[in-house]
Design a protein around this nucleic acid. Structure first.
Lengths: 133, 133
DNA sequence: AAGATAAAGAATAACTTTTATCCATTAAGT
DNA sequence: ACTTAATGGATAAAAGTTATTCTTTATCTT
């Protein structure tokens, strides 16, 4: 378990109990949407406001502490910022897995071919996971 | 210019003037979000309802006639269904380009390595286009 | 071509999702 | 401890999307 108090501070984010709980939930669950995150947080902080969830998600995205992952036919989920990676999405059970795919060569080629300077990729591969086929 | 009357019918969609105008706009512009689409349509049909835009987008997605493209830090855009392709997004000017990337070998490898059966990919590469660097 | 009918459009309300506002509370630096 | 700027909670407001009702129309059948 990481020391998220300092990680938050390093990103110029005050380490409030609500924030630490959100970060902890993302650490444990990997990917969560606002709805399920709120559902979890309300258990710890019975008076937490949904606006607090949104405000924190937004500021943590702004400070690059977390990332939004947009999924086809589903609500966006959020994850702690890690090294660049892609996502596997199971259409049946909704499970999301991180997957490391080296895209460097491909990006290099596309950059040249299309005269397009590429900074970042959002790559979601959808189908059926091991348990759902 | 294609005959979209028949294409719509083949997808079990009535060819109404409003629908044809939407399809035509997508054909011409490539990618549009609900807001800009409504802005264009209101010029042709002064009494068109925003609900009509949403209803048509939803049913056309359902019938696989158009596709939603989810973009980082921007509203989703819609495009006519074509052969599978990826997208280049310019962070500066917002331009979106289709790009053919052969992912077959990569998908094959990922499927094996992760025991995950992959049907479909959503791949957006962001950066700066030719004119914005 | 005319009539019948299921589907679609317009207008509007309702609902969902997200953001803004205001004030009380608190984390963090001095 | 004290101060202050930032954050949380409560709530309202705004933005985005869907549902409802009734009228109109595209399409099928004669």
């Amino acid at each position: 378990m990481k020391n998220y108090i300092n990680s938050l501070r390093e990103h110029n984010l005050k380490a409030t109990p609500q924030r630490l709980a959100i970060v902890d939930a993302l650490y444990i669950n990997g990917h969560m949407n606002t709805e399920t995150l709120y559902g979890l947080m309300i258990q710890k902080f019975s008076s937490i406001s949904l606006a607090t969830i949104y405000k924190n998600i937004n500021i943590m995205i702004e400070k690059n502490f977390i990332q939004e992952v947009k999924l086809p036919h589903a609500k966006s989920v959020y994850e702690l910022t890690k090294t660049s990676h892609s996502h596997l999405l199971c259409k049946k059970c909704g499970a999301i897995e991180d997957v490391e795919i080296n895209l460097d060569v491909m990006i290099e080629n596309i950059s040249k071919t299309n005269q397009f300077q590429i900074d970042k990729t959002d790559f979601v591969l959808s189908g059926n996971c091991k348990n759902c086929q």
